[in-house]
């Protein structure tokens, strides 16, 4: 009963990939891959997506904890705000980031005049844009895991004399590890594929802000074959990274 829709669902997700594979210019592929730009863009993509994920972990897990355990008033409203980057078209997210962190932005103008920091058009800007778009994925997953976890273990730890931080580190974190892993994976994948906010906030300059999705988009304008090749490289790398990491983390944890 469930098998048929499940298979249709799988096919729905896989057919576009098959389309890419079928259209790929296999004969000229090595030549097209040989350009330095591809590896530069791929390296930048991996560095930025990983840094953005690290940033999301540092800020997002505590935020999820606050949402799940903090007992804040107006929690559902805060949760709705957390999902804003999910709803916002990424390009609008990029514009919003420019308005706040840009050279003339609400915060950015002080960053610029006091510290000489200007985020647009820099690799740091790419990381900020990716983290902005990807963080909700992490927060929502971790919050879900936290709410499913039994708070009595934490209470027990507290009655045995563990402080708040020790309880969080030794009891809460291990119990929600699968949720964190799932959220991290989603967050990293979203950051890796991020296009709109990145190109709007950080611009596009090879070696500095041109990540793979940006390179794919521009290649599409002139040589669609190259765009297909670049997409395949990005897909392959992400599948390999996600499959291997996920296996290792989850088996190591249990």
């Amino acid at each position: 009963m469930l098998l048929l829709p499940a298979l249709i669902g799988l096919a729905f997700l896989l057919v576009p990939l098959i389309g890419l594979l079928a259209k790929a210019p296999w004969s000229t592929l090595p030549a097209k891959l040989h350009s330095a730009d591809v590896w530069q863009a791929l390296r930048l993509s991996l560095v930025c997506a990983t840094s953005a994920t690290a940033l999301c972990l540092v800020l997002g897990v505590p935020l999820a904890w606050l949402l799940a355990r903090g007992g804040l008033p107006g929690r559902s409203l805060i949760r709705a705000f957390v999902t804003v980057p999910l709803v916002l078209p990424p390009v609008v997210g990029g514009v919003a980031l420019l308005l706040v962190l840009g050279r003339r932005g609400l915060v950015g103008q002080y960053l610029d005049s006091w510290f000489g920091i200007s985020l647009p058009f820099t690799t740091a800007g790419v990381i900020v844009a990716e983290a902005f778009v990807a963080m909700p994925f992490l927060v929502i997953s971790v919050e879900g895991a936290l709410r499913a976890a039994d708070p009595r273990y934490e209470e027990a730890a507290a009655t045995l004399g563990a402080g708040r931080w020790t309880t969080f580190r030794r009891v809460t974190l291990p119990s929600i590890a699968p949720g964190i892993v799932a959220g991290t994976v989603l967050c990293w994948a979203r950051a890796l594929g991020e296009f709109g906010a990145t190109i709007t906030f950080a611009g596009n300059f090879p070696g500095r802000t041109t990540t793979m999705p940006l390179a794919v988009y521009l290649a599409l304008e002139t040589d669609p074959d190259v765009a297909v090749v670049l997409s395949l490289v990005l897909l392959l790398v992400s599948v390999v990274v996600l499959a291997s990491l996920r296996e290792r983390w989850i088996s190591g944890l249990q």
Binding site: L99, T200, G203, P206, L214, L218
Partner: peptide, 15 residues
């Protein structure tokens, strides 16, 4: 920055 189209370049100037 090498913008993806002319309107994106214009937006950066406008801001």
């Amino acid at each position: 920055s090498l913008e993806q189209d002319v309107k994106a370049a214009l937006t950066k100037v406008g801001l």
